[in-house]
Amino acid sequence: MTKAITVCGLHKSFGRTHALAGLDLDVAAGEVHGFLGPNGSGKSTTIRVLLGLLRADAGTARVLGRDPWADAVEVHRRIAYVPGDVTLWRNLSGGEVIDLYGRLRGGLDPRRRAELTERFELDPTKKGRTYSKGNRQKVALVAAFASDVDLLVLDEPTSGLDPLMEEVFQRCVREERDRGRTVLLSSHILGEVEELCDRVSIIRGGRTVESGSLADLRHLTRTGVSAELAGPPNGLADLPGVHDLDVRGRRVRLQVDTDKLDGVLRRLGESGVRSLTSKPPTLEELFLRHYQNGPDGPGGSAGPGGSAGRNEVPR
């Protein structure tokens, strides 16, 4: 599998703030990769390093097989970038900006530009400040999706879009993947990530805490089980991987590490099962686990620099 992006042990400090503290990231060519993390965890810093706008203090980054700092222009010919907060020139119309960005990249497909303008319901004749936030995002999105590039770097691209436009956005990303393009999608909208992404990386305090397909990640977390049994439950508390056991008569609720689910089901079966629901963890839960109870402690009160060595990637 060829890699569109490889990042290894990336470090970046701004004064005394350690924005990135050994971040790793692997994005395979042709995949949609979700890039998740709390505010201030270093997502945008990473993206700005990948775009060659910031120079990393240590570590390596390769984008489309090249060094994004040294070969910025060559790399950028094959990248389209959408920032989370698009600023436009007040005296240029949206259409002018779309065409400008397209030409400054590898070129623009005029048919696709027209089609996208229509689909996003964008009025390209309005000028800079008269666009709302969502419409400014659309200008950058149309320019990105209509550009002839291999990699799309989207940094919280849908902030300000309404749910209908969010739908359009998701369809566009799927079309991009179907054409074999790679997408790095930084987002806080977990539904979007769950819907679109083949793999995700979760970062926190400037380093990667988890990376893999959603199935992989689910496997690492707990499944919620609630059951009504024919007889009294026995021995559940002794089983490995069982948490938050709550027994009320013949009703049982528990959390279990997903790879220990087999043992729990067998033990429940011994008592006779009347009804059973099991709920796989949502991305939300997965995410909250890392946001709240991650290795750095709740709220990330420990500075990223001070937590060196305490961070473990669960295996």
């Binding site: 119309s93 002018e96 065409d99 000028k127």
Partner: peptide, 11 residues
Amino acid sequence: TRPGPAAGRLG
């Protein structure tokens, strides 16, 4: 504010 052109020539 007057509307601008729908397509631009800046490249």
